[in-house]
């Protein structure tokens, strides 16, 4: 490509990433300001972090969100990984197209619609059977696990579909029973996909505001719900402090995971197992 092509590319990339990262940079910068009001000179301080530490309601909501994410994401992972493995490994089975359609719903349907639909199910079930008794952690976990399963399934499917099928066939030919093939061949090879699917389900659950608003009820405010009701009123530097903490935690976790996955892929292909997909060309 010509030099002109290079320059064009550089400009587009710089503008594009500036657009993507300016808001995140603003959150971080603004969180270290002092209590000088909107116009005053923002000195560097940890004022808003201290205010955050003293806000019991927010800390409560944060704890609840963490618990919710930790309960719902493993459930989402089990359901989603099963679906992803089944769809990638079995060309034909009864209910295959129904499963694909169901998994597509959370990706396409608007959140307001899903949150409302979940609540209508729980209200109808409660009217008919007496279960579940009201809204709360249980209804939140079920809804978040359902939405997360769809994301996990698509990530795991992509990973498993890329894998070499002959490894499982070889294990079967050598007499391994289906459960053993799954546990010792398929699952370890699918592990990077399962791990990133779980992480996605975790952050999705921790971040969800709309679905949770329908299902939480008054005593189960989650962190995003608390942030949402505070932001509705206007700007609040405490939110920037929360934002900075969340952004740095997630960047750290995602960074470590990606580094670990790349390292894992490299060492495995180095060992000559030939199992890691060479497509990414790392």
């Amino acid at each position: 490509m010509s030099v002109r092509g290079h320059r064009w590319r550089g400009v587009v990339l710089a503008l594009g990433f500036a657009f993507l990262y300016t808001p995140i940079a603003w959150i971080v910068l603004f969180s270290f300001g002092g209590d000088a009001g909107e116009s005053g000179h923002p000195g560097l301080s940890l004022h808003w972090y201290r205010a955050l530490l003293e806000n019991e309601d927010l800390k409560d909501a944060a704890r609840r969100s963490l618990l919710l994410a930790l309960l719902s994401s493993p459930l989402a992972t089990v359901i989603g990984a099963s679906a992803g493995i089944a769809l990638a490994r079995l060309e034909r089975f009864p209910g295959r197209s129904a499963l694909i359609a169901l998994l597509a719903i959370p990706i396409f349907a608007p959140e307001v619609l899903l949150g409302f639909a979940f609540l209508m199910l729980f209200a109808t079930l409660e009217a008919l059977t007496g279960w579940p008794q009201g809204k709360g952690l249980l209804t939140l976990v079920i809804a978040h696990a359902t939405l997360g399963a769809s994301i996990v399934a698509s990530v795991v499917y992509a990973r498993v579909a890329d894998l070499d099928r002959s490894l499982e066939a070889a294990a079967r030919d050598l007499g391994a029973r289906p459960l053993r093939v799954l546990a010792t061949v398929t699952l370890p090879l699918a592990a990077p996909g399962i791990l990133s699917g779980w992480l996605l389900a975790l952050t999705l659950s921790f971040d969800d505001v709309v679905t949770s608003s329908f299902l939480a009820g008054p005593e189960n405010t989650t962190l995003p719900m608390a942030v949402f009701s505070s932001v509705r009123v206007g700007l609040n530097p405490e939110i920037n402090a929360i934002g900075t903490l969340m952004v740095s935690t997630i960047a750290l976790v995602v960074g470590i995971t990606f580094a670990a996955l790349r390292f894992g892929a490299r060492s495995r292909s180095g060992a000559g197992a030939g199992a890691a997909p060479a497509r990414r060309g790392s």
């Binding site: 996605l200 932001v231 700007l235 929360i242 934002g243 969340m246 952004v247 997630i250 960047a251």
Partner: peptide, 13 residues
């Protein structure tokens, strides 16, 4: 991966 709500909030600022 970072909170969608917080990014919307950032644009408000």
């Amino acid at each position: 991966w970072t909170s969608f709500l917080l990014r919307t909030y950032a644009w408000m600022g």
